[in-house]
Design a protein around this nucleic acid. Structure first.
Lengths: 247, 247
DNA sequence: CGAGATATTATGTATAGACATAATAATCAC
DNA sequence: GTGATTATTATGTCTATACATAATATCTCG
């Protein structure tokens, strides 16, 4: 076990104080990975609180992966403490606006086609699915900051067939018109080919950051998109505090 | 307001059913951003449950950003629904092992120095802080998969002065020896300079993916590291289901 | 001794009630 | 009308209690 001298700092709700006190024991390595932490009943007695309050603190620590709970056995400091960061991908409009720059949007091409080759090989759309293929870019004060290459399934989103996408970026349009239930992201670095280089205004071969996103609605792929940023564009920042909610 | 025909699927705990039912209303666009959702008291009456149970469901939806709650006013579907993906940065050892490959580690250089120039300009360490500078790489079946360039503050971690880091990667060593309270991540793409290219076994100018991580313990920077992967290395994948916990 | 039945126990879920708090709505004074 | 005061109300927190559940420990019988 472990010592039980938890210090409540008196700041904020009781369950948060308890949460903080325990999280601190863990981050300060006073309670080590694998250690059993005190039982709810022990914490209740020591802190003179009700079990529901202690329970709320422990549950939230378990939600965030700091501890693991097992019936009858007790609660334990998590052994595998992987670094998990909440990566927030903001809408590009908001991001540009947040920098105080003027946002603009340019449609490059919009074609209706059928899924074939690469898209079906990758298992994204079933062969023959009608899709809309959109290529466009987003600019901040006239400078390209994001090139977007997107496919939308007309089976999942028939309305996309009637939308020109010449004024509204497809990302925003989709968010407003289509419910989605699942998304998958992958990030990689790519060298700019001549086309991408000209669209983003960088030199050929320049390193670019690419986010690949695939979105489903109930097991059917709604859209598949490549979002490519100039390499120096360090948008993707996440700050994370273990033992604190929503750092 | 909104209609109140919530369908509980009978699967799992009641508060999770309520949570799912409400999340579904939101992801299916039946309750739209900005809409007020029913009051706790209304949900209690409609579902014939206690307030604490409904409260638990709503709190967890608020924690995950699907709804916003305001005293006296009520609970509302969140207007700004940014795409938030949980980015798990696994330890490189685990990642290589997960691919069924043999992990190995190579120390390239370890030097003790003082923070100056770039590091102080970037505001990372105060000028004159004693730091250990480590350059090393990680391999899978003998092929380089990650180049690491790390600074560790000796003020925050005196023990690092005695550690050779010739067998243990600094990341693992730090995780075991040093508590940390906060971390910040940034991701960008870089072109391989000749040095990096030779370390990673890629051609000069090749696009690489870089994670910058800065870690604090109580307002003092513990370590600052660049982790650089070959560009094709698409590790950073997160799958996310809105309205579901820990998707 | 060992397999199976039984008891124990810590967490998991749910309830009812109480008071605190903050934001809104209503009221009153001028 | 307008500003300050008061009342109302939905959420926020906390308590006490109860039973469910799953995992462990103990006991029993062959």
């Amino acid at each position: 076990m472990t010592d039980l001298a938890l210090h409540l700092d008196g700041d904020g709700p009781l369950y948060e104080q308890i949460r903080r006190a325990i999280a601190q024991k863990i981050t300060r390595r006073q309670w080590l990975p694998g250690d059993r932490i005190p039982f709810e009943s022990e914490l209740c007695a020591a802190l003179n609180t009700s079990r529901m309050t202690v329970n709320k603190a422990l549950q939230s620590l378990a939600d965030d992966g700091l501890i693991v709970r097992r019936r009858k056995a007790g609660s334990f400091v998590a052994t595998q403490q992987s670094v998990q960061a909440p990566l927030t991908i903001a809408k590009i409009e908001d991001e540009v606006a947040a920098e105080g720059k003027a946002y603009s949007y340019e449609l490059i091409a919009r074609t209706a086609t059928r899924a074939e080759g690469k898209l079906t090989v990758a298992g994204i759309f079933p062969r023959g699915t009608d899709v809309v293929h959109i290529r466009c870019r987003h600019l901040a004060d006239g400078t390209p900051v994001l090139f977007e290459d997107r496919y939308i399934s007309l089976k999942a989103v028939p309305a996309a067939g009637d939308e020109p996408f010449d004024a509204t970026p497809p990302g925003s349009w989709l968010l407003e018109h289509v419910p989605w239930t699942e998304a998958e992201h992958a990030i990689c670095a790519v060298s700019a080919d001549p086309d991408l280089a000209s669209q983003l205004g960088v030199s050929v071969g320049a390193a670019c950051l690419r986010i690949e996103r695939r979105t489903w609605a109930d097991d059917e792929t709604v859209t598949f998109v490549h979002l490519t940023y100039p390499g120096h564009h360090r948008t993707l920042i996440g700050r994370f505090q273990p033992g604190q909610r929503g750092g």
